[in-house]
Nucleic acid binder design. Structure first.
Lengths: 141, 141
DNA sequence: CTTGACCTTTGGGCAGCCTAACGGTTGTAA
DNA sequence: TTACAACCGTTAGGCTGCCCAAAGGTCAAG
């Protein structure tokens, strides 16, 4: 699997794949004839995993750490710390994404007249239990 | 609602809220006595909305555009274009986040012995139907 | 009236990713 | 076999989004 194929399947740009590779999060082997980077099937899962954590604000070095734990099998017992702190955010985002996605579906199905307005969709995102862990260290320094 | 309160409730830093405000995505009014920025209840939904779209890679100017459509009520009929293209990504991410969140739950419940390893979790992210729209313009320039 | 926890603005810094430029490789097909 | 389009690589620089520190105002509690 070459760079562009992995990128397209994974839903990111080829440049992003190259970037993750430069930083050591993906480890392709090289075609000795032309220097092309070749990714195995496993790389797709890694790429999706990276993309998910990045969108939660986890840094590339932290993700690299988690991936190396996964590679070593160290992580069945010691839970990767940067992952655990994301639990609440993961559930919330999953729910929010579904709400938005379903709203888009409604729009696409000629149900416009009976469905919610965009304004109502946005407001509804503020009405859930959006409370995170108390000591989340994410309000002011 | 002052800046830190909104930030904490919304799960972002106060600096991020100030940034969105500087860029015009949030419009607080000012306490005339001290210059503090005061956010109404509606801002929370907007903030969550911004955070969701940002994590999908939508740029702040594009989000600002969508928000202004929502404010004008323009969007019941003309579907905000940057939103529509995200539909597939939204569903996929919602599913992926749930998978990861549940895996973390398993880890936290002393079920470690019988649950999947981190490596298996990551690999499973590559086995779903991760195919996006064909002309997604997100593989190479 | 001082301490601590807020708030403001300004300015600089950094990570993550994009873009352009240049040259090599590959496959298809004139 | 030449020519073209569509890949690939590396390098260098640029942009966006957000963080952080500094310097100073506000405010409630003790």
């Amino acid at each position: 699997m070459r760079v562009s194929e992995l990128a397209q399947t994974g839903g990111v740009t080829a440049e992003t794949v190259r970037h993750y590779t430069r930083e050591g999060l993906l480890q392709p082997h090289r075609d000795p004839r032309n220097g092309y980077q070749l990714y195995d099937a496993e790389s797709l899962g890694r790429l999706r995993f990276i993309d998910c954590l990045r969108s939660l604000g986890v840094s590339l070095p932290e993700i690299k750490q988690i991936l190396s734990w996964a590679d070593q099998g160290t992580a069945e017992f010691i839970e990767p710390v940067p992952l655990a702190t994301q639990r609440g955010r993961l559930y919330l985002r999953a729910q929010e994404f579904q709400v938005i996605a379903r709203w888009i579906d409604n729009m696409n199905q000629d149900k416009m007249t009976e469905s919610f307005s965009l304004k109502e969709l946005i407001e509804s995102l503020g009405t859930g239990k959006l409370v995170f862990e108390a000591n989340d260290s994410r309000s002011d320094h």
